[in-house]
C-alpha cells in the first residue's frame, strides 16, 4: 500500500525529495516507490509538474527558488522540462482571461497563435448555435481581431521575458560552476598554504595562530553562541570540525537564521587528512552583522546521497 496520501504534507515531502532535501533513508524509500508504486510515481510526476510550473510562474518562495536553481536546474534533462513548461504554459494561458495571461512568461507568438486561434475558432464553431445570425458572427470576428491585437502585444512582451529568463538561468548556471571551480581551487590553495604554514610553524614558531576560524558542531547542551569577527571583504576561511569522518565528501549550506533563508552553498568538500574537519572559504560580503547564521553540513556517500551530519551556529560580531 502506498505511504502517500493526497495531502499538502505529502506534496511537501515530494517537493523536498525532488529538491534533494530529504534524509537519505527517506529518499531511498521514495527512490524505490517512485519506480515500484504506481500511486507514488503518478503523484511524484504531478508534484514535479506543479513545482516546475511554480518556478516558471515565479510563485516559488525565495528559499525554494534558490534551491530549485542550484539543485533542480543542475540537470540538463530537468532544464529541458522547464523550457518545455514555459512554452506549454504560454500555450495554456492563451486560453485564459487577459490578467492571468499577462502575469506569466510566454514564448514566441506566431506559431502558437496560429494553431490556438484555429483551435479556439473550431471550438467556438462547435459551441455556437448553428442558426447564429450574421451580425453576431461579425461581432465575434471583431472581438477576435481585438483579442489578437492584445495577444500580439502580450506575446511580444512574453518573448522578451523568456529570453531574459533563459539568460538568467544560463548565467546562474555559469556562476555556480565558476563559484564551484573557484572554491575548489581556493580550498586546494588553502590546504597547501596550511601544510606549508604548519611545517614552518612546527620548525620556527610553535603555537602560532591558525588562519581559519574553527567552528564546532552544535551539541544538545546550551552554550554561548560563537561570535565571529573578520574583515568585511574577501573570503573568510572556516574549518568545520567533524565528530567523525565517515563520508568521502561533504557539502555545507549556510542559512541566515534571522532572515530565515539559505544564503550560500558549498561545492563538494573533501575532509582534511590531518584533522577531522572540512575547510571552507565563505565570501565575507554575505555575512551581515549582527545576524545569526548556521552551517548545515551533510555527508555525501559514494552513491551521491546526502545525510545531515552536523549544524554549526554562530553570529557576526556587530562591531
Amino acid at each position: 500500500m502506498s505511504l502517500l496520501r493526497d495531502s499538502a504534507v505529502d506534496s511537501e515531502r515530494l517537493v523536498r525529495y525532488l529538491m534533494g532535501l530529504l534524509p537519505q533513508e527517506e529518499a531511498d524509500r521514495l527512490d524505490e516507490q517512485s519506480i515500484v508504486d504506481d500511486d507514488v510515481a503518478c503523484r511524484l510526476l504531478t508534484v514535479e509538474n506543479d513545482l516546475v510550473d511554480a518556478y516558471v510562474r515565479e510563485t516559488l518562495e525565495p528559499d525554494l527558488r534558490l534551491r530549485f536553481e542550484s539543485h533542480y536546474l543542475a540537470s540538463p534533462l530537468r532544464r529541458r522540462r522547464v523550457k518545455f513548461a514555459r512554452r506549454f504554459l504560454a500555450a495554456v494561458d492563451l486560453q485564459a482571461p487577459a490578467p492571468v495571461m499577462r502575469a506569466v512568461s510566454m514564448t514566441q507568438p506566431i506559431r502558437i497563435r496560429t494553431s490556438l486561434t484555429s483551435w479556439m475558432s473550431r471550438q467556438r464553431k462547435l459551441a455556437w448555435p448553428v442558426l447564429a445570425v450574421a451580425a453576431t458572427f461579425l461581432l465575434a470576428v471583431g472581438l477576435l481581431v481585438a483579442e489578437n491585437v492584445n495577444l500580439r502585444t502580450g506575446l511580444h512582451q512574453a518573448l522578451h521575458d523568456e529570453d531574459a529568463q533563459d539568460r538568467r538561468a544560463q548565467a546562474l548556471s555559469s556562476q555556480l560552476d565558476s563559484a564551484r571551480a573557484t572554491n575548489a581551487h581556493l580550498a586546494r590553495a588553502l590546504e597547501e598554504a596550511r601544510a606549508s604554514s604548519s611545517k614552518t610553524s612546527q620548525a620556527a614558531a610553535p603555537g602560532a595562530a591558525q588562519a581559519a576560524i574553527v567552528l564546532l558542531p552544535q551539541t544538545r547542551s546550551l552554550g554561548p553562541l560563537a561570535t565571529l569577527a573578520f574583515s568585511s571583504t574577501g573570503l573568510v576561511p572556516l574549518d568545520l570540525r567533524l565528530e567523525s569522518s565517515d563520508f568521502p565528501c561533504y557539502r555545507a549550506v549556510l542559512k541566515d537564521q534571522d532572515a530565515g533563508r539559505l544564503v550560500w552553498e558549498s561545492a563538494l568538500l573533501a575532509p582534511r587528512s590531518t584533522t577531522a574537519a572540512v575547510s571552507l572559504l565563505v565570501p565575507a560580503g554575505i555575512l551581515k552583522p549582527p545576524h545569526r547564521y548556521a552551517f548545515e553540513l551533510a555527508g555525501v556517500d559514494a552513491a551521491g546521497r546526502e545525510e545531515v551530519v552536523g549544524s554549526y551556529t554562530f553570529q557576526i560580531d556587530p562591531r
Binding site: N49, D53, A54, R57, T59, R87, F88, L89, A91, V92, D93, Q95, A96, V100, A103, V104, R111, I112, T114, S115, L116, W119, R122, Q123, L126
Partner: peptide
C-alpha cells in the same frame, strides 16, 4: 508544440488548459 497540440483530442486540450492555467 503547435503540431502536437493539434494532435490532441478537443477534450484533452480543454482538460490541459483548465488543469494547468493560473497558479496557487
Amino acid at each position: 508544440l503547435d503540431r502536437c497540440l493539434d494532435k490532441l483530442k478537443p477534450e484533452q486540450r480543454e482538460l490541459a488548459v483548465e488543469y494547468y492555467r493560473d497558479a496557487k
